[in-house]
């Protein structure tokens, strides 16, 4: 029987990824640590991220690109120098019958 890891990222099906703070908890150590650090920095250049990871810029860029594709990070290339930034999703509203919401407002 396969070992059950409660922190294994749940499989998603279809559509573009939308990530929340909760999804961050399921990332592997390296990626999670990088985003934790990026959240505190707010933004960082590739050189700063590489220094944090203690990796070459090529290696760091690959990690960041993977995080961009997963929906955790965005690349702000309009800035000079370009920066990486955590991509925090909107906290979703809750689904309840409209009648209840209308009664509260």
């Amino acid at each position: 029987m396969a070992e059950c890891n409660e922190w294994q990222m749940p499989q998603r099906t279809g559509g573009s990824p939308t990530r929340t703070m909760a999804d961050l908890l399921f990332l592997p150590d390296l990626e999670r640590s990088l985003i934790n650090w990026l959240l505190r920095q707010q933004t960082a250049t590739l050189a700063e991220a590489a220094a944090y990871l203690n990796q070459s810029e090529i290696e760091a860029a690959a990690v960041l690109q993977d995080l961009i594709e997963q929906g955790f990070v965005q690349w702000l290339d309009q800035l000079d120098p370009p920066q990486y930034q955590p991509k925090l999703q909107r906290r979703k509203g809750r689904n309840m019958p409209t009648k209840i919401w209308d009664a509260l407002e």
């Binding site: 906290r91 809750r94 919401w101």
Partner: peptide
């Protein structure tokens, strides 16, 4: 309070 629950908000704004 109900509006926050209903509509949510941009979590990134909180960090900023």
């Amino acid at each position: 309070i109900a509006r926050v629950l209903r509509e949510g908000f941009d979590v990134g704004l909180l960090n900023d």
